[in-house]
Simulated scan of single mutants.
Amino acid sequence: MSQLNAVTQDLMTRRTYVSRLGLSLTGALVGLPLLSQAAPAILPAATSLPDELEKALKAKEPLIVMVSLAGCPFCKMARESHLSPMQKQGFPIVQVDMRSELPVKGFNGQMQTHDQCVKQWRVSIAPTLIFLGPKGQELVERMEGGYLPDFYGAYLDERIALARKSLRS
């Protein structure tokens, strides 16, 4: 009988182990999407366009303003894949949000909301990138929409090169 108890005990230990292993793996798989999501890329919100432009021009760069919309997947792609890494390397980029009540000082010296600024610029598509130079003038054609993800970086590089050329002429 003791041999039967030992076999039963061994079988119960194996079942417990397999059951606990299954629960552990299930828990890990449920939590996996949370681990794979990195912190979202964030660009600094524009607070004073004249000051931000002045810093950009001192660095001999155009100021890139990303007009964004909360929840926009194309905005997220542009921000995470291109703009945030550039901004971390020191490139002057700020974000203005459609429908946002955040205050921003405009080029006329007046305070307005991000949304008012977007309407003043007549932006209706997110994302839109605006490349600004002296006195807040647009240096090159805007980048509107998401473009093809594989080519977004190439279009962005081209616009930056043209904006730099315009600054130097």
Rank of each mutant, 00 (worst) to 15 (best):
G133N: 08
L49T: 05
E54T: 13
P44A: 05
M66W: 00
F91A: 01
A78G: 11
V123P: 00
I125W: 04
K58C: 02
V118G: 02
Y152W: 14
G109S: 09
Q112C: 08
L148M: 13
F151N: 14
A56F: 09
L156G: 09
A46E: 04
G109W: 04
V104P: 11
V94N: 01
G106Y: 09
M98T: 03
P127S: 06
G136S: 11
D115H: 14
G136W: 10
Q87E: 01
Q110G: 07
V67Y: 13
I130Y: 01
V123Y: 00
L139A: 12
P92S: 05
A154F: 12
V123G: 01
K55E: 15
T128L: 05
E101T: 13
P44M: 01
S48K: 07
S124I: 10
M77G: 04
Y152D: 06
V67S: 02
D51M: 12
I160G: 07
Y152V: 04
L69C: 03
F91M: 05
S68L: 01
A59Y: 03
E80K: 03
L57Q: 10
P73E: 09
Y147L: 14
L129S: 06
S84W: 01
K88G: 03
I160E: 06
T113V: 08
L43W: 00
V67W: 11
K135S: 15
P85N: 03
A70D: 13
P134T: 08
M66Q: 15
K135P: 00
E61A: 15
C72S: 11
M111Y: 10
D97Q: 11
D150H: 12
F131I: 04
I160S: 08
